[in-house]
Amino acid sequence: MSVSRILLGLLEPHSQHGYVLRRRYDEWFGNSRPLKSAQVYATLGRLDRDGLIDLTGVASGVGPDRRVYAITEAGVGELDRWLDEPEVPEVTSSRRVLFAKVLIALSSGRPAEPMLDRQRHAHLDRMRELRAQRQAGDLLTQLDADFEMYHLDADLKWIDGAAARLARLAALVSRVDDAEKESR
């Protein structure tokens, strides 16, 4: 999650101090990982240094919480660029681990099917949790849960596809193994 670009976007409608920005961030995106105060101030400091925001004043009170920032013209340009640019379609590294585990299990002579069964159950358990959150939550919570559920659903489809082709995959892995033994 690009915290700096999100804070930039939250600042655009009008100038704000760090406390309000952090509260809004956590309200919208904090489910996965709430922001720490220090992270907000460090990020705002960097944005200020890069000329994307300006310190425009200090609200009454004590501490960095009270510094008021506004987005600059360069900041608006950067925000436009970030919003206009499609994200690189990619899967997260934790998802790749599943693929790696299957291949390593098969190449080391371990059965991959029980591993995939356990993973399927873990995914389904998480989907049940998300569905319960979704049912009890507001629209933001629902869309946040949907995002994760669709990704888990995609993982589960991959797990089913892999489970259906384990025998072929095991044969492939063992052929590679045999070829390597012969070449030694």
Binding site: H123, R128, M149
Partner: peptide
């Protein structure tokens, strides 16, 4: 066959 439907259940029985 849909995990999102199965998520409504208390548990899932997987057949093979």
């Amino acid at each position: 066959h849909e995990a999102r439907v199965a998520a409504y259940a208390d548990r899932t029985v997987f057949l093979r």
